[in-house]
Write a protein that binds this DNA or RNA. Structure first.
Lengths: 259, 259
DNA sequence: ACGCGCGTTTGGCCCTCGCAAACAATTAAG
DNA sequence: CTTAATTGTTTGCGAGGGCCAAACGCGCGT
């Protein structure tokens, strides 16, 4: 099984510092030394020498007096995406599901106890949602995430909640462990997860899990849309069936495609 | 203008170490502590504590006893790609050029004195080439790179050659500075760069520069194919015109799209 | 049962990370 | 034009931590 996220043992503080600077740099969308020093709480001198080191290694790039995250991340990203065994397979199915539903369709996998969006396509009538490829969200508040959680061992789910909590986003967000465990049980029975305005008010979503035990990849495929279109039989039956069968195709082919 | 890549001043050795470990991890496509220690020359204990720190910060993920580059890089990648002002614009034009030519068409930008592929599309008859999104190549050996070099100030070109050299890939690769400077002059006159089996034998390529002075982005758009199809007027005139006008569209629209 | 490989932990010397403060180079204001 | 307040960069120095060697514990194959 998977290892817990924070194991004991020694850490390298200087590296910790660099990681914080990198995170800040990405969140601030580029910044100067002083800004970063203020943001991270380190001295200007410290930030400066870290940035110089990261620039030498081409993880950041210096343009005039501001620093930026470099395009080296694109290389790492492409590599690590392909490292997800069912990446391409899932892509095809999300595309098909998009054509079929005309809505926003997505694919997510679990990592570090969070969900990472890997594919997002918008159909003809699709609304605009904030999520994007590479975006990370807690698992408890989306249909995709709940579908994933439903497949994980109970102890792993508890670890994740301990680490990430159950942050409330809307009145409908599940914030109690008992309520969540019940829901996961229901999801396991039906093999679909519903999100009824739990992430964002006005937004509904249906997702089905795509568990690939060979590569230990927990994923889910979904379609999302406005409550006005996601209701009644279309929501509970039609779209549920659509994501379920899409997930099924991925799972079945996964074992075939194994390299 | 741009700053030179290696400025003086202090570096953080521990961060240097982590960067080397990260690079090794990506190149080895995942590895264990001992493998990484052997590869990088650091002790197992050192590698271990670095990996633990990077895992805490979610830049690497531990699966059982092997470590991997994490999907956090996807987030950073998506952000930094969008940071290239003409990213989406170039994407559209590469697509159009692909439809028009039926060949492999690409878009590259300069960073750290190298060329980074950002877009790649394959047309109906397109051959398979090794390059991929995020891949980095020296500038002197591709049509894309030479197109970019032709737009850079002479001193910057020299800096780049000092840093990266003029590695020979085929008998046709340009390996002398004088020969390169002559060629860059020709490219500036014609506004197109040709690659006649300088990267790979049997492969030809035409590229035109897309310089965006506002954002200081030096890029190029290209089409590549086999010598059998890339010859005579089609190569020197037709395809040259195609990439030139595609580049022109990008440059013209760049100033409009500026946010 | 044994040994070999792995990842992990520990002890300890030496180095270096990180801060404060000075410095240089722009820019803004008076 | 001068002054003041920003930057980014460099330096001195002390306390803290990085790195290695060696030991430890585990799993696997023999």
């Amino acid at each position: 099984m998977d290892t817990q996220d924070t194991s004991p043992g020694r850490r390298i503080q200087a590296v910790q510092t660099s990681c914080e600077i990198l995170d800040a740099l990405r969140n601030m969308e580029g910044a100067g030394v002083s800004e970063l020093a203020a943001e991270t709480g380190y001295s200007k001198a410290t930030v400066h020498s870290h940035l110089a080191t990261l620039a030498d290694n081409e993880f950041v790039v210096k343009r005039g007096d501001t620093y930026e995250v470099s395009l080296k991340f694109v290389d790492f990203s492409e590599y690590t995406k392909q490292n997800v065994a069912i990446y391409e397979l899932a892509k095809q199915e999300v595309k098909k599901l998009t054509a079929e539903t005309g809505e926003v369709c997505q694919f997510m996998v679990e990592e570090h106890g969070q969900g990472v969006y890997l594919h997002k396509f918008r159909g003809e009538n699709a609304i605009h949602t904030a999520s994007y490829t590479g975006d990370r969200k807690d698992l408890h508040c989306t249909a995709l995430g709940k579908a994933i959680l439903s497949q994980l061992p109970h102890e792993r789910v508890e670890e994740i909640i301990d680490r990430r909590g159950l942050t409330k986003h809307t009145p409908n967000t599940i914030t109690s462990r008992e309520r969540l465990y019940e829901e996961l049980e229901t999801i396991r029975e039906q093999n679909v997860a519903f999100d009824d305005e739990e992430t964002l008010e006005g937004l509904r979503c249906v997702a089905a899990p795509t568990t690939d035990r060979e590569s230990n990849t927990y994923g889910a495929i979904s379609t999302s849309g406005p409550t006005s279109r996601f209701k009644g039989d279309r929501f509970r039956e039609e779209l549920a069936d659509a994501v379920r069968s899409a997930a099924n195709v991925i799972e079945v082919n996964a074992t075939q495609v194994r390299r």
